[in-house]
Design a protein around this nucleic acid. Structure first.
Length: 472
RNA sequence: CGGGGCGUAGCUCAGCCUGGUAGAGCGCCAGCUUUGGGAGCUGGAUGCCGGAGGUUCGAAUCCUCUCGCCCCGACCA
């Protein structure tokens, strides 16, 4: 390794000659890092772009989270990407906790696999077909059942290797006829999809139940009330399926459920994934909830005065589909008796990029986004109201340095702008806490801490603010 | 895929009907004054008027074609 390189990694202050350093030292977050708005990339829009019709789309554009590249295809700007990564992380943690194993499959897949399953024709124009230079038919994956089944059958030959549950978080492309609503219905979208493989129906159901509860936990951690609803299985096929629906005016799905769902707590609970989950599953699904596709007004068990008809956003769906792919694709294992058995499969999807929009739909006000802390791009927005004032700069710089050092995620508005503009910007991007440093407060030795949700403010000493925010 | 709408400055939009050579507000740049909820004044920069073809002395404006985007419906994580 070269000396110059090492210097960079050691984070030597500029202007000082690099000290010899033989041991690698990790680069710490630097107090003068790029999370100052003066250095950040946050292109805010003051007005609503005309193409955006729903609130999440408008706010994502206005808050500088995304930019459209073409219909249904978006770039994620720094602020948006931070949220996407946080959502992704929660999804990953809950998958891991439920025993799923992460891998990563490619976006581009060979057509042969899809011809084998019979879906190459069935999928129609939604599948983006590509021809490579050798005239080989390829496609941009809209989902991965074929590919995962191929990987599975290549390597898993015995019932002793079951069960398996494999997932990845990867970009998908579905050439929707009508992309809309920003990231809620993009053509390109980030999805967590996983696939379970079991020897028999009992095992497959257990896998299904595990994902059922992993999903409830995942959405609850994002502050979402996602109701599991009985759903049609669609082109993926199978016979047991639930959609996880967040109720919202702007949702695309017509749904029906028992009023009790709305009165229940956010659906979070501890789960022992090794236990028999069926009783718990039956309890959770005893309360009526169904998507419009399968709801039958005549057969509905819920009396009319308890039935809620609403619109909802589908943030996830789980399927048990038996041997639909394993049989035609010959994903078989040797059973205990040595005879080949096609494996029982399920697949499970969460729209990761869609969730970002869904969270905004569920949590915003007139002024902008209100991020739940778990997915907020930063925890704290530190605002210096008077960029030209030495005292304010010193106080705000100090808070920024100490919070950052303590690992608190801070976005520091150090720009020279009017107070109103700064408040409006902070409200728009919706960080959970706003820490305001101004001359008026400093005269009294205080700073102001405002919670974005609810808008409660309190004046307190900088030390107290640090303690409260976890930087003390 | 059916139906509708819109493409003019970074954003929101006017101008088009009735052709005469490009506008406003916000934003951006410079300066000064301001500063606790989107500040004021002064000066400045920015457009292949989505693209191609046509009509015309002359096209943002009229005609034809085309591309893109949005909305409603049917379909979907």
């Amino acid at each position: 390794m070269q000396a110059g390189r090492r210097t960079l990694e050691a984070g030597a202050p500029h202007g000082h000659p690099p000290r010899p350093c033989l041991k690698f030292r990790p680069l710490l977050r630097q107090p003068r890092g790029p999370m100052r708005l003066s250095a950040y990339f946050l292109p805010l829009l003051r007005e609503n772009p005309s193409e955006a019709q729903i609130v999440s789309h408008r706010l994502m554009l206005r808050a500088g989270m995304i930019r459209q590249s073409s219909a249904g295809i978006y770039s994620w700007l720094p602020l948006g990407l931070r949220v996407l990564k946080k959502v992704e992380r929660i999804v990953r943690e809950e998958q891991d906790a439920a025993g799923a194993l992460e891998l990563l499959m490619p976006t581009i897949q060979p057509a042969e696999l899809w011809q084998e399953s019979g879906r190459y024709e069935d999928y129609g124009k939604e599948m983006l077909r590509i021809t490579d230079r050798h005239e080989r038919a390829m496609l941009y994956g809209p989902t991965n059942e074929e590919l995962i089944t191929d990987i599975f059958r290549d390597s898993i030959k015995s019932y002793r290797d079951l069960p398996k549950n494999l997932y990845h978080i990867q970009w998908k492309f579905r050439d929707e006829v009508r992309p809309r609503f920003g990231v809620m219905r993009g053509r390109e979208f980030l999805m967590k999809d996983n696939y379970s493989f079991d020897l028999d129906v009992k095992g497959a159901k257990h896998s299904y139940f595990k994902m059922f509860f992993a999903y409830l936990r995942t959405f609850a951690r994002m502050g979402l009330r996602a109701i599991p609803m009985r759903a049609e299985t669609g082109p993926i096929g199978g016979d047991l399926s639930h959609e996880f629906i967040v109720l919202a005016e702007t949702g695309e799905s017509q749904v029906f459920c028992d009023r009790a769902w709305l009165e229940s707590e956010i659906l979070d609970m501890a789960v022992d994934y090794d236990s028999d989950l069926e009783p718990q599953f039956l309890r959770w699904t005893s309360l009526y909830a169904a998507t419009g596709d399968i709801h039958d007004a005549k057969a509905c068990p819920v009396p009319e005065d308890r039935l809620v008809t609403a619109r909802g956003i589908e943030v996830g769906q789980i399927f048990y589909f038996g041997t639909k792919y394993s049989a035609p694709m010959k994903a078989v294992v040797a059973g205990p008796d040595g005879e080949p058995v096609p494996v029982e499969m399920g697949s499970y999807g969460i729209g990761v990029s869609r969730l970002v929009g869904a969270i905004i739909e569920a949590s915003h006000d007139e002024a902008g986004i209100i991020w739940p802390e778990s997915v907020a791009p930063f925890k704290v927005g530190l605002v210096n109201l008077r960029a030209g004032d030495r005292r304010c700069v010193a106080a705000a710089d100090d808070l920024y340095a100490r919070l950052t050092r303590a690992g608190v995620e801070v976005l520091y508005d150090d720009r020279d702008d009017s107070p109103g503009a700064k408040f409006a910007a902070m409200d728009l991007i919706g960080l959970p806490y706003q820490l305001v440093v101004g001359p008026r407060g400093l005269d009294k030795g205080v700073v102001e801490l405002k919670k974005r949700a609810g808008g409660a403010r309190q004046e307190l000493s900088p030390e107290a603010a640090l303690t409260l925010l976890g930087g003390g």
